[in-house]
Amino acid sequence: MNLEAVIFYLFALIIVASGGLVVLSKNIMHAAFALMFTLFGLAGFYAMLLSDFLAVSQIMIYVGGILVLIIFGVMLTSKITGVELKTGPIGKVNYLFGAAISVIIACGLSLLFTNSKWIEKPVDKIPDSSINAIGYSLLTEYILVFEVAAVLLLIALIGAALIAHKDQIIDSDASSNEISTNNDIKIKE
């Protein structure tokens, strides 16, 4: 077993263990943070497959972006203080249902794995960097997809800005009664 294999199994262990934690953890925050390790392990795999740009993008987008979003969502939507962030009890029917789905997916994946024709030809030349190739193909072959994605993101951005802006429009003609009752000096015991 050479060094590469050791590292591979190390990453695999991290992914499986943290993935299990994501599924089995009763605390949503623990699950979210365990997901971070899963994503990191995945990035490690990409790096081992010499696609360094993909690996770094994985960290950038999933760890730095989506995971933070998930954690923010969890923290902001549920009660932060007082109530514990835990998943509720799951019925036995749901267990059976979940198990069935898992078995079906596992079977499907194994079938796919055994039946697909894998390219077994070794790569004769290790590319120095995948980033140039990605850049060229994004701006030539896949320019339409790239631009559509960009427009979609722009729309999302404008929408977000509009939603954030909305309460300012409301407050300009806010009825002062509501506020002034809120601002009364309350003497509480």
Binding site: I170, E178, S180, N183
Partner: peptide, 18 residues
């Protein structure tokens, strides 16, 4: 208190809490 409200509209962030 109303007086306070009317005169302090400058940098204050008024949010309709409801």
């Amino acid at each position: 208190e109303n007086n306070l409200e009317n005169t302090t509209n400058n940098n204050k962030i008024n949010i309709e809490y409801s």
